[in-house]
């Protein structure tokens, strides 16, 4: 009986009210979810749908964050390699990057002084072959200076950079590329590569290993530099 009294318009009204009340439940739920989310200064990139600009971003962090973090946190490469070449797991625990969750990432910030034995440009992935101080004529470390820089070690060594913050994998990769480009501009382009053999350098850099990667040869732990500085020989300082 009742149903006959109800006009189509009324049904519409009822549905509308029912819909609104359901809608309000959902909104509350999403708000709660948003509140649960950790907010940080870069989270607006994805939430607002604003396009991420890797160049601007790298410009904003290079001098203020990237360089200071490497200067402060890098460990003598001798110490890292000594453990790493014996026991990768132990090196991970001692020197690996630690996530807030406690998870260890096989990314290492390293520093060292070395003599450049040669600049190997047989590949576009050009390498400085280094003999670490104190020198013994042995090849100890490869420092990749490009023009092609492989992989994403600088990005992966910086804990404040999170994948979630940059939206998607392409942006995450372009961020790594920009870090590599900035490094080349600041640290590699000023070098006189033709005359670098026999010179001494001081470097800060990153090593990133794959999960199941073995660490045996020099090629397995190529260092991506962040900062390279020439060390003037003592004689020239006296001149």
């Amino acid at each position: 009986m009742r149903r006959r009294i109800v006009q189509p318009r009324l049904f519409f009204l009822i549905l509308l009210i029912a819909g609104l009340s359901c809608g309000s439940c959902t909104i509350k739920k999403l708000n709660e979810l948003d509140q649960d989310k950790e907010t940080d200064e870069y989270s607006t990139w994805t939430k607002s749908g604003k396009e991420f600009n890797p160049v601007e971003y790298v410009n904003s962090i290079w001098d203020e964050k990237v360089i200071p973090i490497f200067m402060e946190e890098s460990v003598e490469i001798h110490a890292v390699l000594e453990v790493l070449l014996q026991d990768k797991e132990k090196a991970l625990q001692e020197y690996g990057l630690t996530r807030p969750s406690g998870e260890k990432i096989p990314a290492f910030k390293v520093k060292g002084m070395a003599e450049v034995l040669k600049y190997d440009d047989s590949s576009r992935n050009g390498l400085l072959v280094l003999d670490l101080q104190p020198t013994d004529g042995q090849e100890d470390v490869l420092l990749q200076i490009g023009p092609v820089i492989r992989q994403t070690a600088i990005r992966d060594s910086l804990d404040f950079i999170r994948f979630t913050d940059v939206g998607n994998q392409l942006q995450f990769a372009s961020l790594a590329d920009q870090l590599n480009l900035r490094m080349r501009k600041e640290s590699v382009e000023p070098l006189d590569l033709e005359n670098i053999s026999g010179k001494n350098i001081c470097f800060y850099g990153a090593i990133k290993l794959e999960e199941d990667q073995e660490v045996q040869t020099l090629k397995d732990y190529v260092v991506t530099p962040v900062k390279i500085e020439m060390i003037e020989a003592e004689e020239s300082e006296n001149d």
Binding site: L33, D34, K37, K47, Q169, F172, A173
Partner: peptide
């Protein structure tokens, strides 16, 4: 595969296709 929007899925377990391609 990933969706660009966050806050819809409770979790996204993504294959890093771009890293793999590189």
């Amino acid at each position: 595969r990933e969706i660009n929007v966050t806050g819809i899925a409770k979790a996204q377990l993504i294959s890093n296709n771009f890293q793999g391609a590189r």
